[in-house]
């Protein structure tokens, strides 16, 4: 199984980048920031920078959660062994 090792420290420069992030990455980065801050090994300037980033991430997380709507797709066909999904409405 392919492993996604995304929990290494990555920094996010601006809000635009933040919005394009996956929820998981946002949440994980936020989690990481909190643990860095709790560790207390960064300078005051860094901690304030991290704090600002963290608040931004928290906002994005909340937005992503509140905007979300479940999507359902159903297998429509197989072409040469490739499967293709189409939108599926359960109420039909």
């Amino acid at each position: 199984m392919k492993k996604k090792s995304k929990d290494s420290i990555f920094t996010i420069e601006n809000q635009k980048d933040l919005k394009s992030l996956k929820f998981e990455d946002c949440f994980k980065r936020l989690e990481k920031i909190v643990s860095i801050l709790e560790e207390g090994s960064v300078s005051l300037e860094e901690s304030i920078k991290l704090y600002e980033e963290g608040i931004g991430l928290a906002k994005i997380c909340m937005e992503k959660l509140s905007d979300a709507e479940l999507k359902i797709k159903k297998l429509s066909k197989e072409i040469n062994g490739k499967i293709i999904f189409e939108d599926f409405d359960l109420d039909e």
């Binding site: 929820f23 992503k64 709507e69 999507k71 797709k73 159903k74 297998l75 499967i83």
Partner: peptide, 10 residues
Amino acid sequence: FPIVELLLYP
């Protein structure tokens, strides 16, 4: 957790 996509293989 509505952020997901469900893919149904009937």
